[in-house]
Design a protein around this nucleic acid. Structure first.
Length: 580
RNA sequence: GCCGAUGUAGUUCAGUGGCAGAACAUUUCCUUGGUAAGGAAAAGGUCGUGGGUUCAAUUCUCACCAUCGGCUCCA
């Protein structure tokens, strides 16, 4: 708690320093956060200014000023903050007649506290102004963008240095850096920003994951479907995406004429428009509706690794975790109302199984129950009954499965509530991966039905789910999780054979033949052993097999395990043994 | 999209108002090696793109583009 107060007090010290260095600054808010604090304000700054501000803060801290709390009437507060529009806005929202203010020297802030007693309690070496960022007032992009100054703050200098070191280490496991170093993927402007090009070693990782994915889906009673990348505008109008999802979609493609006609500015006679798919759902619904269904057919579980395209603002793009074209490991489960609960539970089990299989500790995954914001009904499709039922059943299932989840109002999709699973990246940012969503919107819009046991038409329930979320994001997080040193089964190259000299290449090829079935490379470069070992380690290959005269004569191999020392000379059989 | 930072060889990075630099990677040659870098040579650049200032711009300046950190949004 003590540290929380220091962080918060530091934000006041920061504001005080700004006030004494710059004129006419409009202050917004300045809370404590996970590793420090920030303050939002209206002031023009460059990153170079931070040093000066930090020095000023230290000066303030050294001069031992106390934090004085006072409770005053709103009227008095309005007078004090008459030149502070953001503070005035905050005062207006306070329900009580009085407000609390804190004074630090000549800096007065609207603040409930608590604070430390005096600046002398702050260790001047335990904090550091970190970075400058923009942040919208109240987090709304329609509002003015303020300047946010982030500061780091810890108990002492050691903890601060430790954190800074940790961040430097984290940068080394950034998947974007690893993607380059391990030759896995890249993106480039000429192809299109936010569109990933997978190199051979990256594509094989993808393929291994996809094979595993599809095998497990078949085992879990799913069937595979396959659908196009574009679809008629009429489909998207009917699905509701045209209306509710247009901010994330690309504009229509005119398909009633060729590119040549278009270049020649030919007149469009009968316009026909296609849209790039941002989701796979409507296609799966079309497959369902292609023939009448009985209650006996349900549940249907249809899976597809479908590549979707979404309009993401340029500033939002990031490596593999945020792209414009990505492949979802999508599936839709169409079932009867009495099957909903069991289906949801099975999906949760499947999700947990996936995390375990890829080495993610379930404790490192955060779960959110995303609900609608009832104040903004305009943003959601479907009836209240549908929302009430689906929200409550999702909550029930999450509780029964003992998921440690947080409820988030206003985070639902336009078509239904969802259960989201998020994983942190190397820098501590959370990314949504698995998602389990309700969709009672499409069933209605597309008149989906089945004949029940009484011979009546009934509307099915539709669940939408993704386990990885998208291959791109999941692989990105996987790379960061393992710092590029993927487990044996996922490694693009599992074994690298290092012939001591060119004379041993033949024996290396013999060994490669004996290890058929594994992904193997022979390092035929004219380098020293030391150099080849180094390269193999840098490529993060799980096993390096050194073969020379000694091994050739005794029909053995020298095994070196990634990151470890020499495991010694052994037979191929023995090597295959330790692999199991 | 918005705020801030960055942009020089495939990669990591020096540098300068006057012919563009290193290391690693690449190619060739020498070397034929025993568990994290053997030696030499060659090749490799529209200094992000486009304007402006200047005798001269990679360098100063403006605009744009991309990347990175945030905000908003999101698988």
């Amino acid at each position: 708690m003590e540290l929380e107060n220091i962080k918060h007090s530091l934000s006041h010290v920061l504001a005080h320093a700004i006030q004494s260095l710059y004129k006419d600054v409009k202050f917004a808010i300045g809370p404590a956060i996970e590793n420090g604090f920030y303050y939002d304000m209206e002031v023009e700054l460059k990153e170079d200014d931070l040093k000066k501000i930090e020095d000023k803060m230290k000066e303030i801290i050294k001069s031992d000023i106390s934090f004085e709390q006072k409770t005053i009437t709103k009227k008095e507060a309005r007078e004090i903050f008459k030149d502070q529009p953001y503070k005035l806005e905050l005062i207006d929202e306070i329900e009580e007649d009085t407000v609390s203010i804190y004074t630090l020297g000549n800096f007065i802030d609207l603040c409930k506290g608590p604070h430390i007693k005096s600046t002398k309690e702050i260790d001047i070496n335990s904090f550091k102004l970190d970075k400058l960022a923009g942040a919208y007032w109240r987090g709304n992009e329609k509002n003015k963008m303020l300047t946010r100054i982030y500061g780091l703050a810890f108990e002492n200098k050691e903890k601060l240095d430790q954190y800074i070191n940790l961040m430097e280490e984290a940068e080394k496991r950034d998947h974007r850096k690893l993607g380059r170093e391990l030759d896995l993927f890249h993106t480039e402007e000429e192809v299109g920003i936010g569109l990933v090009l997978w190199h051979p070693k990256g594509a094989i990782i993808w393929r291994i994951i996809e094979d595993f994915w599809y095998q497990k889906h078949l085992e879990n009673g799913y069937q595979l479907v396959r659908t196009p990348h574009i679809g008629n505008r009429k489909l998207w109008e009917r699905s509701g995406h045209w209306g509710f999802y247009s901010e994330s979609m690309y504009p229509p493609l005119e398909v009633s004429q060729s590119l040549k006609d278009n270049k020649d500015k030919e007149e469009i006679k009968d316009s026909e428009q296609f849209l790039l798919k941002p989701m796979n759902c409507p296609f799966h619904v079309s497959i369902y509706n292609n023939s009448p269904k009985s209650y006996r057919d349900l549940p249907l579980r249809w899976a597809e690794t479908g590549t979707v395209y979404r309009f993401e603002k340029k500033g939002e793009l990031s490596g593999l975790t945020r792209v414009r074209g990505f492949t979802q490991d999508d599936a839709h489960i169409i079932c009867r109302k009495d099957q909903v609960e069991d289906e949801l539970k099975e999906v949760i089990d499947f999700i947990l199984f996936i995390y375990k299989s890829f080495g993610f500790d379930i404790d490192s995954v955060r779960v959110y129950l995303s609900l609608r914001d009832e104040k903004n009904k305009m943003n959601y499709a479907g009836s209240d009954e549908g929302w009430n039922f689906s929200e409550s059943v999702l909550r029930k299932v999450a509780l029964e499965k003992n998921l440690n989840f947080t409820e988030e109002k206003g985070e639902a999709a336009f078509y239904g509530p969802k259960l989201d699973f998020k994983i942190k990246d190397a820098l501590g940012r959370e990314w949504q991966c698995s998602t389990l969503q309700f969709d009672f919107n499409l069933a209605e819009r597309f008149n989906m039905s089945f004949t029940n046991d009484k011979g009546e038409k009934e509307q099915p329930y539709m669940l939408h789910r993704a386990l990885f979320g998208s291959f791109e994001r999941f692989i990105g997080l996987l790379l960061e999780h393992y710092a590029g040193a993927l487990p044996f089964w996922l490694s693009p190259i599992q074994v690298k054979i290092i012939p001591v000299s060119e004379n041993h290449i033949d024996y290396a090829m013999e060994i490669k033949e004996k290890l058929k079935g594994y992904r193997i490379e022979i390092d035929k470069n004219n380098d020293t052993i030391g150099k080849k070992i180094r390269n193999g380690e840098m490529e993060k290959v799980p096993y390096l097999l050194v073969v020379g005269d000694k091994e050739r004569e005794s029909k053995t191999i020298s095994v070196r395990q990634r990151g470890k020392i020499d495991l010694g000379v052994m037979s191929i059989e023995k090597f295959l043994e330790i692999q199991k």
